[in-house]
Amino acid sequence: MTPPRPTRVIAQLPATVPFVGPEVIERRTGKPFLARLGANESGFGPSPKVIAAIAEMAGDVWTYGDSENFLLREALSHHLGVGIDAITVGEGIDGLLGLTCRLFLEPGDRVVTSLGAYPTFNYHVAAQGADLVKVPYADDREDLDALVAATRLAPTRVVYLANPDNPMGTWWDAQAVETFVKAVPEETLIILDEAYGETAPEGTLPPATLMQPNLVRFRTFSKAYGLAGMRVAYAFGMPEIVSLFDRIRNHFGVNKLAQHAALVALADRDHVDNIVEKIAAARHELVATAREAGLVALPSATNFVAIDCGSSQRADAMLAAMLDKGIFVRKPMVPVLDRCIRISVGRSEAMGLAIAALSEAARAVKPL
């Protein structure tokens, strides 16, 4: 009997996983991590109010969540100062990116992104059979002028920009982003990924009212709000483009606990402000450690720090040394960026272990 075959696009794809999770690595090695600082989660955790709210609602998980995510969208509407019909909620930015690619990409469509930028976006583009054009970074930042030029070189369906950026942690100010948005051809959809917006300096994010028919902006509760495990994020833009998500989204995809947790987290501004301060302090500590170890830490507007090891070979060796010490960290994998390792920040216990391992690795692995 001939088994069912996948679509032609899927059949031609290699078996790809954008990120190997820490649990997978632990199973492969048989060795648990002592510090989990490689996935850019918030090691500080969610607000105590969120934890209490989840516990209180746990008995209600026999019911589906609101298919319209109404209360969360209503709260986000007040938070952003935009209409509720300008907002959609989804299963993390990863899930929303997948929906966006399904909505707008067909096989052979041209998509522009940065070489080394968030690989999960590329993963979803590949699933649609679209063609990726990758623009190199310039001075460890996504090159806005080059991205615009690439969209103008040939008809382009989508361009992706993360600001602040993952994996380098660098950023552009709001004025530069607005100039970029205005310069992209109107027939090209702009995906503006602002996952790390809460941890960025004031003046990084354009006002939420920056909207135009070819722009969709994405934010998440996974970072500063500490809800990575709940998988809840949102996209916002002109209602006519946001409404398209309703045609294909999983209407019960964001579970009841996630909706309620995000609602409570959004309301606890004091906790978010406190976490942002802790993230900044931990970044400063990592930067100082890197400097003492003879390394260069890149400026960061995120909850992680990219540390320049001088070469890809040394970065590989230092990554291996830290993993061997039980410290889960990651590194960019494309040329130029791959001279760095990337360390998320977290609680003092985990940071202490990471700082000790980083210092020891820098001493043991000499510059090449």
Rank of each mutant, 00 (worst) to 15 (best):
A55V: 09
I275R: 03
G30D: 11
V184Q: 04
R141C: 13
N69S: 14
T188A: 12
I84M: 12
L72R: 05
D140L: 03
I343L: 10
L115P: 05
N250K: 13
A195P: 00
D268Y: 14
A208C: 12
M318N: 00
I248C: 11
A200F: 02
K325Y: 02
T63Y: 09
V135N: 05
V148N: 04
V24E: 13
Y234T: 01
A357H: 02
A288R: 12
A362P: 01
A35L: 04
D273C: 07
Q259F: 09
A261Q: 06
V296N: 01
I25E: 12
A117Y: 00
K134M: 15
P367G: 09
V9P: 00
A117M: 10
S300N: 03
V242N: 05
G203V: 05
M1Q: 08
R73V: 11
H251D: 12
L210V: 15
H251W: 11
L147C: 03
E240F: 10
E186R: 15
G38R: 04
G197M: 01
M333P: 05
Y234E: 02
G90R: 02
V336A: 08
P32D: 12
L99P: 00
F44A: 08
G310I: 10
W171V: 00
G326K: 07
G98I: 03
I93H: 00
D94Q: 13
V148K: 01
T113N: 00
L192M: 09
E74Y: 11
S77G: 10
P185D: 09
V287D: 08
G253W: 04
A317I: 03
